[in-house]
Nucleic acid binder design. Structure first.
Ligand code: MN
Ligand code: MN
Ligand code: MN
Ligand code: MN
Lengths: 251, 251
DNA sequence: TCTATTATTTCGGTGTACCTAAACTTTGAA
DNA sequence: TTCAAAGTTTAGGTACACCGAAATAATAGA
């Protein structure tokens, strides 16, 4: 109900609650939230009570945490900010894709709505960030090709990488080194004979790049778009309203 | 002595202490600092004690507040950040000069050293911001033509506006409307017969722009560079070292 | 020189966002 | 079905950056 100016902590909590569901399609638990935010479980319990009081989440004690419609709107606004900032840093300021996440994590709380919309316009209103993550538009609509995490896919699937987790810069540099990026075409071969991981191949490879084994961690960080999927058939209308701050004068 | 990560409050205190001297050439008092920061006097007393403990200011009770060498380095780093950000917002994101101050006030605490240096490079390492304020270089050196506030100048002086206070957006829009901007050439005529203010004329005016009377507030917001002054003769070496954060890894 | 005014600091207290340790649920393995 | 381990919340406490009111110091006028 309340429309207090959201603190950067609140913004991060709500964003992480949203992002968890985007990647795991189940609601986040208290301890998972604590791990992702790098705070103690008790801090999460307290903050979740506050978020509930403010109408941003639904929560019963000892149960997972869900965003309300209002919480979702705030989360989408933060996701939009974060991903537009990452895109801007790469395209306009020459950052590499492994450098942008931490910078955007700070900036997302400091920039104004005005700044965000200027940036979006200058970039031509992009719909994906440098890691393939979809950027909600100013009305909270998300467009993305239907995709699945590599570790959930049965052997035999071929398609293009649609998104890559940007949380670990070292992982991004590793992927770059082995030639995997957004829109790279590849085939899932399945688990190798012994041990863990996932074997993949590059169907378009011209030279001697043979099949590769990805660790479980790497495989869970990659999403593959079904071959022939079309972005337009996957618009999700997630919120009714605009993502702009209700009172933009409150700088 | 301590090299704790500076909070945005500390950054603002130190920056305001520096900026006061830049405009008034005398050290700031506790209550002036409180006014400029929009906090209570008691808050300033407490914070100044903390700044002293951290070696950023010299201060005896009931006396004005001076920056130490270390405090000056931090202040110059913040001034550099603020003015580069303002310049960037105007040149790259299409902000007008009255919109940039508040946005930069937030961003200056959120961007990394890396971001600042990328921005500076992209802008061609500018030495003035949109209001004429000098931008310290990465070593803390400031270059500026010798100038004086309009309200301290004797009648008869002619020169170019070298800097304009950016704190009041309405004032900036007013100046724009009456044709005064950075590098505008004008002559100080002195006080009008009755009442307050300062009369000026535009020696280069081609049309019917006659002499104008500026209010005291406006006159105190403008600096005039002596006719024929040369920037190179006014480099101030203000600090020995680099303005970069000692441990840049501590994001 | 002696106030009266003004400036500054100290004191007690608030809200936010954390923490550790202790208490309390839930769950799943025996 | 039971109960120990795992997950979660509560209790008590800290640091930070504020506040208003009270106390204290500086200063300037008579
Ligand atoms: Mn963040
Ligand atoms: Mn991303
Ligand atoms: Mn600031
Ligand atoms: Mn400025």
């Amino acid at each position: 109900m309340k429309h207090s100016p959201n603190s950067s902590s609140i913004e991060d909590y709500v964003k992480v609650i949203y992002a968890y569901t985007e990647w795991q399609d189940k609601p986040i638990t208290s301890s998972a939230l604590a791990t992702r935010l790098g705070v103690a479980n008790s801090s999460v319990s307290e903050m979740v009570r506050k978020l509930k009081d403010q109408g941003l989440v639904d929560h019963e004690p000892y149960s997972p945490i869900h965003l309300t419609a209002e919480g979702l709107t705030l989360a989408l606004a933060m996701v939009r900010r974060h991903r537009l900032l990452e895109t801007y840093l790469v395209r306009e300021l020459g950052y590499s894709w492994d450098e942008v996440h931490d910078e955007a994590e700070q900036l997302e709380h400091a920039v104004s709505d005005h700044f965000i919309e200027r940036m979006s316009a200058k970039l031509g209103h992009p719909s994906r960030d440098p890691h393939g993550d979809p950027i909600p538009d100013a009305q909270g609509r998300i467009t993305m090709v239907p995709s699945h995490r590599l570790d959930e896919l049965d052997p035999g699937h071929t398609g293009r990488i649609s998104r890559i987790s940007d949380h670990d810069p070292a992982l991004l540099r590793h992927l770059e080194a082995i030639g995997i990026g957004v829109d790279t075409r590849l085939t899932v071969l399945g688990q190798p004979r012994f041990g863990a991981g996932l074997q993949i191949a590059f169907p378009d490879a011209t030279n001697d790049v043979g099949p590769l084994t990805l660790s479980d961690e790497v495989a869970a960080s990659l999403w593959l778009a079904s071959e022939g999927a079309h972005p337009d058939c996957s618009v999700q209308e997630l919120t009714g309203g605009s993502l702009m701050t209700p009172y933009s004068d409150a700088q």
